[in-house]
């Protein structure tokens, strides 16, 4: 087929990038339009404090979205990100509060726990050939159960580690640049996004993740050990869930073991709205962050307008479908 389409674009611009970039641009335009809309129609929406509030409401979903972006680009799916986040938060609580270890150890433990559980999912998928949907559905329950078991089904508090608030509510940047009251949790989200972007675009890890998602068999026949790369992909996803776990538990000053169910769907929605294809091989981290912002701006704006929670849920659903529709239209054109 493509024999006849040779050099159609002729620009040297990779078509898949331009499609993803285009949709990222579409998502960005939607975000701006939403902000403008609410600024005009919702009293008290356009204030600095609310902007910070929106960012804070985005942080956890944004980080989880970045985590699952890796997996989705690789052609997989991870339904366990929400409960994995909870498990890592509980891990941090065990290490910091119950064992009294210093903060850096707690941070490492949470990320390591996430990476380890992610790697387990990866092994199950790559070696046992269990479809990702099912493997991570199982992992979702395993992580949730372990979080309850390890915590004794009780929240774990971080009162003995006052510096734990550094991970989310505190604003280090406001001390450096007065007036910029962005909480650390939000800054961490941006840093995670930037690093993730670099990993996906500049490192061999990212290259392999795109290759897996575009054409796993071709990658395998190129002599690439696809199993190892898959396991690494899920481990990265789990490790990033660990960061989300730190942010959420820092914000609540406690690891709440019952939290987390349903967060995976919000994260996947952010990824999809941000233009990453669920079919794999295509997507951007920045798109996911924009997607997460679209969801939280929508939620916040509708609440500020006093729209009922029930309708907010309906509108979010509509946005997801519209986003995927745009994705399909753009992909046909590209």
């Amino acid at each position: 087929m493509s024999d006849t389409t040779m050099d159609k674009s002729g620009t040297g611009k990779p078509g898949f990038l331009s499609a993803a970039t285009l949709q990222k641009a579409v998502a960005f335009v939607v975000l701006i339009a939403l902000v403008l809309f609410f600024s005009i129609f919702a009293n008290n929406f356009a204030t600095g404090a609310n902007a910070v509030g929106i960012m804070q409401a985005t942080a956890v979903n944004g980080v989880l979205g970045v985590a699952v972006t890796f997996v989705i680009i690789s052609g997989g799916i991870d339904l366990s990100v929400g409960t994995m986040m909870t498990l890592t938060a509980v891990t941090a609580g065990l290490v910091l509060t119950n064992l009294g270890m210093p903060l850096p150890i707690g941070i490492l433990a949470a990320i390591a726990a996430g990476a380890f559980m992610g790697a387990v999912s990866g092994v199950v998928i790559a070696k046992l050939k269990i479809p990702p949907f099912i493997a991570t559905l199982g992992m979702m329950q395993i992580a949730r159960g372990l979080a309850l078991v390890f915590s004794g089904a009780k929240p774990i508090y971080f009162n003995d580690t006052p510096s734990y608030s550094l991970l989310s509510p505190e604003s280090t940047i406001s001390k450096l640049i007065p007036g910029v009251e962005i909480p650390n949790g939000v800054m961490i989200m941006f840093i995670v996004a930037i690093i993730a972007s670099i990993v996906l675009n500049r490192t061999i890890i990212g290259r392999m993740i795109f290759a897996l998602g575009s054409n796993e068999e071709a990658a395998r026949l190129s002599g690439i050990n696809i199993d190892n790369w898959k396991i690494l992909t899920y481990a990265i996803c789990g490790g990033i869930c660990g960061i989300a776990g730190l942010i959420v538990s820092s914000r609540l000053n406690s690891a709440q073991p019952a939290l987390g169910l349903g967060y995976e769907l919000d994260a996947i929605a952010a990824v999809v709205i941000g233009g990453t294809s669920l079919a794999g091989g295509r997507g951007t981290v920045m798109g996911t962050i924009i997607g997460a912002f679209i969801m939280s701006v929508l939620t916040n704006g509708l609440r500020v307008m006093g729209v009922l929670e029930e309708w907010k849920i309906v509108v979010t659903g509509v946005i997801i479908i519209v986003a995927v529709f745009i994705d399909i239209v753009l992909r046909k054109r590209a």
Partner: peptide, 29 residues
Amino acid sequence: HFGLVTGMSVRDNITMASWRRYISGRVFM
């Protein structure tokens, strides 16, 4: 299906099987 990762560039496909030679610091391309 089996030869090319068609969504990726000429460069990425040519270097796909030899990527080890084109990274620095273990991961950076």
